[in-house]
Amino acid sequence: MKYIITIGREHGSGGREIGYKLAEEFGIPFYDSELVNRICKEKGISDEFFSEYDEKKGSLIYSLIMDLYAKEANVIENTSLEQKLFNIQRDVINDIADEGACVIVGRCADHILKDRENTISIFISADTDSKIQRVSTRNKLNAQDAKKKMKFTDNKRKNYYNYYTSKKWGSSYCYDFCIKSNKLGIEQTVSTLKNMIDFLERG
């Protein structure tokens, strides 16, 4: 297996689970919250603080932590705090990709690694009803609150992605494959993606 697989996903689509299962199928590392923990460990930033501003902008905690980090970061002084965080994540994602095949969920990894020939970018979506059901079950929420959570999370991801990539989150032209998980179910979606990647690897 030679490919680095990046996965973007709508909240409630099962994208993280699909990524995890796909990594298991290929026997390669999986990075999501693990990626954040690795960034924190390498840069000496508390993962508890880091999680407060991951994939979002404008937090007071974010500003305080990044001010503390700024003296050690190899960035020009007038670089925004948000850009400093993105630069840290970009460097770690590139380091991870240098190590070999893996699955990376979120973090604009598809854009960061776009110039690598061995990268496959995937976007996972699903219809609204199936996402509501999934989020409701997982978080023990009623349908209305689940829908609010979905909208909030997806807006956060969209704004983050669009800002740092100058592309449109979820648009098919940004990814190699786009798939609706509710059409096949999680297991069959994993199987379908694995078969497609196996086909590409056979060349």
Rank of each mutant, 00 (worst) to 15 (best):
T189N: 07
N195I: 00
S13T: 01
A109M: 08
T119V: 15
L200S: 12
I186L: 07
K151M: 10
F26I: 08
C178F: 03
V103D: 15
K21F: 04
Y69F: 01
I197C: 08
G100V: 05
Y164S: 03
L113Y: 06
I122V: 11
G19M: 13
L200V: 00
G19K: 13
K71D: 05
Y62W: 06
I96F: 09
N182M: 04
V105C: 08
N195W: 09
I61W: 10
F50D: 09
F177S: 00
L193P: 07
E117R: 11
F26S: 13
V36H: 06
F86I: 05
S51M: 13
M1W: 08
K148P: 03
A97M: 07
L60F: 08
I65F: 01
K71S: 05
R38Q: 11
I112H: 01
N195Y: 07
G58E: 14
L200P: 02
N118F: 05
K56L: 08
F177D: 05
E55P: 11
F30Y: 15
R157A: 08
L68N: 10
S121L: 06
D98E: 07
I7H: 03
I197S: 10
R9L: 09
F123T: 05
I7T: 04
F49L: 14
I5G: 05
K71I: 01
D54Q: 14
N118Q: 14
Y163Q: 06
I5N: 11
Q83R: 13
Y160V: 11
Y69N: 08
D54C: 00
G44N: 08
A126E: 11
D54H: 14
C108L: 04
R202T: 00
N139R: 09
I197E: 15
K56S: 07
D95F: 03
D127I: 03
Y53D: 07
L200F: 11
D54E: 15
Q144H: 09
L141I: 03
E99A: 11
F199W: 10
L85P: 01
V103A: 10
Y20K: 15
M1T: 14
C40W: 04
Y164P: 02
K168M: 09
E187G: 02
I186R: 01
S191G: 00
T192A: 04
I39N: 02
I112T: 02
N142Y: 06
Y69P: 01
I28S: 12
N78C: 00
M150E: 14
D176R: 02
V105Y: 11
L193F: 02
M150D: 15
G170M: 07
R116Q: 12
Y3E: 14
A143V: 00
I4V: 14
E42H: 01
